[in-house]
């Protein structure tokens, strides 16, 4: 009998240590993250970054995304819904985080499309057709061209721009900023500079609600 109590006590103790260590770690990590973002505020937005929403909106959502990322695709309409629910108060800024193999081609395509003023149309076309060209985390950038017809891009110019040093520099800058802000997974959001405490729709929504309440 004693052995069972001893075993149960030890199991409970181990679990407790684990839970406490996790809580302590997460608290410290949250503080470190806030510090890091404060120090790297300039890394959140760059001049080339595509934005959507009113210029005077007081809640800025910076989203690091990868067009080949399935979770980014499912977050896209969610972010749009939040914008629609608070018209004129939310501004979205997209940063490139090409973490999948082959994604660098895709974000170059996006950046080149941005130069033609077609960033959002191209991004939406990519997300809409994503299951056809990026099934099972295996993106095939060559297939994406087939789905861009309706966007109205100047394809010759797009291809030339993709190879340009300006596009290369923009993508490199975003990757550097992602590293500075410790973005390792996509999508990653910063709402007025604050990262999500943990990953999830609800956490993002709460963060946005907090900032909306504070700003308006």
């Amino acid at each position: 009998m004693n052995q069972k109590y001893l075993f149960g006590f030890a199991a409970a103790l181990l679990m407790m240590v684990f839970v406490i260590a996790t809580l302590v770690h997460n608290t410290e990590k949250g503080e470190r993250l806030d510090d890091m973002v404060t120090q790297n505020r300039s890394a959140l937005v760059r001049d080339h970054s595509p934005t959507l929403g009113a210029a005077d909106a007081r809640v800025h959502i910076v989203e690091f995304l990868d067009p080949a990322c399935e979770t980014c695709r499912s977050f896209y309409p969610f972010v749009k819904q939040m914008m629609a629910a608070a018209p004129g108060r939310i501004r979205v800024i997209v940063r490139y985080a090409p973490f999948h193999d082959g994604s660098d081609q895709l974000v170059k395509m996006l950046e080149a499309a941005r130069m033609q003023g077609k960033f959002w149309e191209t991004l939406e076309a990519m997300f809409a057709s994503q299951p056809n060209w990026a099934a099972h985390h295996n993106p095939q950038p060559d297939l994406v061209w087939n789905y861009l017809d309706g966007v109205g891009l100047d394809m010759a110019k797009l291809k030339a721009d993709m190879a340009s040093s300006a596009v290369e520099a923009a993508v490199r800058q975003d990757l550097e900023d992602a590293r500075a802000l410790n973005v390792t997974k996509t999508p990653e959001f910063f709402v007025n500079g604050r990262p999500m405490p943990s990953f999830g729709y609800e956490q993002l929504q709460n963060l946005v609600q907090d900032e909306l309440k504070a700003a308006y």
Binding site: A10, A11, L14, M15, V17, F18, A21, T22, H25, N26
Partner: peptide
């Protein structure tokens, strides 16, 4: 058990 929780801590928490 300690090793498992330690490994999970390093992997999942940290």
């Amino acid at each position: 058990a300690g090793s498992m929780l330690g490994a999970l801590f390093l992997g999942e928490v940290m």
